[in-house]
Design a protein around this nucleic acid. Sequence first.
DNA 1: ACCGGGATGTTCT
DNA 2: GAACATCCCGGTG
Length: 203
Amino acid sequence: MKALARSFYDRSPLAVASDLLNKVLIGSNGTGRIVEVEAYCGRDDPGSHGYRGVTPRSVVMYGPPGLLYVYFTYGMHWCANAVCEADGVCGAVLLRALEPLSGIEEMRAARSKARRDRDLCNGPAKLCHALGIDGALNGADLRRGAVRIVDDGTPPPEAPRNSTRIGLSAGADLAWRWYVAGNPHVSRSRPVHRRSDRSPASD
DNA sequence: ACCGGGATGTTCT
DNA sequence: GAACATCCCGGTG
């Protein structure tokens, strides 16, 4: 279990994203293997919270690499990202799904509505709730803080699947989602198509 | 299985 | 005031 070097995060989110697959996220309630992520590329990405520049919400994404960016959405959910790129450059990778490894009982207690173990962490807000991640952890250090990402020796998949990102209107055409093929803890094997979407993304 | 709608409140225009 | 990097539940087939 070793922490990731700062240089791991000091790259484009497009490079960091697939490298985060199969790494291990450690939270206060337990741990899980990262099986699904999405890249958000700051000023170059209309789907990113940093697209229009620094705001009170997006400021952490402009900070140094290796921090945790936690945001609140839909009036009730927290979502967690790993901040990428050099200090001053905006970028992050959204953690979308985990395969629980330890602390299953604690996660079940936190997410009593989850019927099966695969429902504990198969979505960005679900994994935050399961692991006890909320806004108090925004800006925390992923290499030394209460929430960490570590390498347990499992390499990233040789052939990760990718697709368009889920739940966006702006930037919906960019295929910046990656996931572990065949893993049952991935939130969806295919992205949801908007009604106007005629051609599903090939994945 | 798929689909539609409600919850709930912050964020930025 | 509209949009929102979501989730859950209840309908229908």
